[in-house]
C-alpha cells in the first residue's frame, strides 16, 4: 500500500440541499482496477466526476500520482494539472462531433501534450488499431455505432497515457448486443496495467475485471473488497439487498429468454 495512484480524502458534495457524497475516502493503488457498484442515485457517477473536477467537490482533497489538490481552494492551474493526470470515458461517448475518429484521439496529444502532428497521427492509428477501429480513422462519430464510438472514446483516453482512467458507466447507453465488444476492449486495457476506476452496472464484468469492488449507497462507501468476497459473501445488509435484487432481476430475464 505504498504507491497510491489516486487518493480521495473526505470528499463531500451537495447539489442544493441534497447531500450526494458524504465524506468519501478511497485509495487506488497503481495498476489496480477498482469497480464502483451501487444503486442509482448512490453518488457513484458524481464521485467519479469530482475526481477530474467536472463536478467541484465541496470539501476534501484529491491526490493523483502525488499531486494533491484541495477541492475548496483549487486554482485553475491545479484543476488543469489534475485533469491532465486523468482521462475519462463517458456514458454518452462525447466524441468531438466536428472531428474524425483519428482527430478525436489525436486532439489531446496535439493540443495538450504539444506533440507533433505526424507523431500524434502515428500513435493515434496505433491505438485505433488496438481497439479495432483502424478502418474507421477517417469516419465521423455519427457514422459509427454506439459500440464503435465508445471504443474510440476509450482509445482517446488511453492515448493520453494518464495515471488513472475513469470510466463512467461506459456501457449503459449501448444496445445489449454492443456491450460485449466494449467490455472486451476495457478488459484488454485493464490487462496492460493501467490504473482504472470503473462505474458500471455490469456485475459479471466487475467480477471478471476488478481487483476490488467498492459498493456505494446513499453517498457513502458501504463496503469494499475483492470481487470473490464482496459479490459472494458480503458483510453488510445493504450490499446483500442490492446484490440479491440484481441477481433476481438477472434471473427473471434469463427466464424470459
Amino acid at each position: 500500500m505504498s504507491n497510491p495512484m489516486l487518493q480521495l480524502r473526505d470528499i463531500h458534495k451537495a447539489f442544493g440541499t441534497q447531500h450526494v457524497l458524504k465524506g468519501i475516502n478511497l485509495t487506488v493503488e497503481k495498476g489496480e482496477v477498482v469497480v464502483i457498484l451501487g444503486p442509482s442515485g448512490s453518488g457513484k457517477t458524481t464521485l467519479l466526476r469530482t475526481v477530474n473536477f467536472l463536478e467541484k467537490a465541496d470539501r476534501g482533497s484529491i491526490t493523483a500520482n502525488q499531486f494533491t489538490v484541495e477541492c475548496l481552494d483549487a486554482k485553475k492551474q491545479d484543476v488543469l494539472m489534475l485533469r491532465r493526470k486523468t482521462a475519462m470515458v463517458f456514458q454518452n461517448y462525447n466524441l468531438f462531433a466536428n472531428k474524425t475518429i483519428l482527430e478525436n484521439v489525436m486532439e489531446g496529444l496535439i493540443i495538450v501534450k504539444k506533440i507533433k502532428k505526424k507523431i500524434a497521427e502515428k500513435k493515434g492509428l496505433e491505438v485505433l488499431d488496438k481497439v479495432g477501429l483502424a478502418d474507421k480513422a477517417n469516419a465521423y462519430p455519427n457514422q459509427l455505432s454506439g459500440g464503435q464510438q465508445q471504443r474510440a472514446g476509450i482509445a482517446r483516453a488511453i492515448l493520453l497515457n494518464p495515471d488513472v482512467i475513469l470510466f463512467d458507466e461506459p456501457t449503459s447507453a449501448l444496445d445489449p448486443e454492443l456491450v460485449g465488444e466494449v467490455l472486451t476492449t476495457i478488459k484488454k486495457i485493464a490487462q496492460t496495467g493501467v490504473t482504472m476506476v470503473v462505474v458500471t452496472h455490469e456485475v459479471s464484468f466487475a467480477k471478471e475485471v476488478a481487483n476490488r469492488i467498492v459498493f456505494m449507497a446513499d453517498g457513502n462507501i458501504v463496503e469494499q473488497g475483492p470481487p470473490e468476497k464482496l459479490l459472494v459473501n458480503p458483510e453488510k445488509e445493504r450490499t446483500k439487498q442490492f446484490l440479491s435484487r440484481i441477481t433476481s432481476e438477472k434471473g427473471s430475464t434469463d427466464f424470459s429468454n
Partner: peptide
C-alpha cells in the same frame, strides 16, 4: 458533454 470531453483530455 462536448465541453466536458475537452476538459477530460486536459484542454483549457
Amino acid at each position: 458533454g462536448q465541453l466536458e470531453a475537452c476538459y477530460s483530455v486536459g484542454m483549457t
